[in-house]
């Protein structure tokens, strides 16, 4: 699965520009599914199984967009100013490289830093494409770029940009591969525009109209030196979300996840995330509502170019996701 993760995380695709990554994933899933379609906002919706007796219509959502940049101005010397697409923290930008959807490349620089105690805002940063004038700059206002960073395989752990949430997209692809029989109608949704406000999942959930659903996303950890106080660690298994700042998981879904993990001997940990939201909220409130939750892959350094996950955790999330939908669901 490492090759798949590498392929997915290294493909550029910030929110709103998911056409390339969507095609990459479509090729992966085409032979594995009963139905593949793309909705009006660009969500890739992949169905496996038809509803048998005792089965449910389930939506599983992993977002395929990533954080990135958009050019706001090119100055007379060819420096491109930009804003963030999604939550880009300025301190992760300096020295970073940007890969634009039109193929242009560039590095991120910053105006003179007045005080080393204070990180300037993104308005002080710019992208240098090597251009010398507005005219020969390969990007223009509105052009979109993603961050560039190859995957690093540390054996037990994998590092790269956009583990959030391409690692979950890989989980969904792998789960599709592993899911042989199901009494459920399972919609694997590769959603767009999550980083700008769960927009893709909102419309996908309306279209799919699930009876139950969950997101697969990354979550923060509390296992780094003087890090946040949080009871999630790398390597301790799939994280079952109880709440994040966007929603409170349905307690029936939480129990379903815990019971399934225990019944199948899959290591898991409970997660309360105080900062961050997921597609689970969009599933929960679509139409007349659906019990919803989230299974998370623990991940360090989220929204930096070096997000780190534990490979065993990833495999355990695949197992849990697949086990959740392989059998009749009783909430």
């Amino acid at each position: 699965m490492k090759e798949l993760i590498k392929k997915l995380i290294e493909t550029p695709g910030p929110s709103g520009s998911e056409h390339v990554i969507r095609e990459v994933i479509r090729k992966e899933v085409e032979g594995l599914a009963d139905e593949v379609r793309v909705d009006a906002l660009g969500n890739l919706i992949v169905r496996k199984g038809t509803k048998a007796e005792g089965g449910m219509r389930v939506m599983i959502s992993a977002h395929i967009d990533e954080i990135g940049v958009m050019v706001t101005h090119v100055d007379e010397n060819g420096f491109a100013r930009f804003i963030a697409i999604g939550g880009v923290a300025p301190h992760t930008c300096l020295g970073g490289r940007v890969w634009f959807m039109n193929g242009a490349r560039g590095v991120i620089g910053v105006e003179k830093i007045e005080s080393m105690d204070k990180i300037p805002g993104l308005e002080s940063f710019y992208i240098d494409t090597g251009a010398t004038s507005r005219e020969n700059c390969p990007v223009k206002v509105g052009d979109v770029g993603g961050f560039e960073r190859p995957m690093l395989d540390l054996g037990a752990r994998l590092v790269g940009k956009s583990m959030d949430d391409r690692v979950a997209a890989a989980v969904l692809v792998e789960s599709l591969r592993q899911l042989k029989e199901t009494p459920n109608e399972v919609y694997y949704v590769f959603s767009v525009q999550e980083e700008v406000g769960l927009r893709g999942a909102t419309t996908a959930a309306f279209g799919v109209a699930p009876e139950v659903g969950f997101a697969v996303d990354v979550t923060r950890t509390g296992d780094t030196p003087k890090g946040a106080k949080m009871e999630v660690s790398l390597g301790k298994g799939a994280a079952v979300k109880v709440r994040d700042s966007s929603f409170i998981a349905d307690p029936r879904v939480v129990n379903w996840m815990v019971n399934t993990a225990e019944a199948n001997g899959i290591p898991y940990q409970m997660e309360v995330l105080e900062r961050g939201g997921t597609d689970g909220y969009a599933i929960q409130i679509a139409r007349a509502g659906a019990p919803a939750g989230c299974v998370s892959v623990p991940c360090r350094y989220i929204h930096s170019p070096s997000e780190m996950v534990d490979y065993q955790d990833v495999l355990n999330v695949v197992k849990l996701v697949t086990a959740l939908v392989a059998n009749p669901i009783k909430l």
């Binding site: 906002l41 927009r199 419309t203």
Partner: peptide, 9 residues
């Protein structure tokens, strides 16, 4: 508008 129903370009 774009978030309504199953999505509106």
């Amino acid at each position: 508008i774009h978030r309504q129903r199953a999505g509106i370009p």
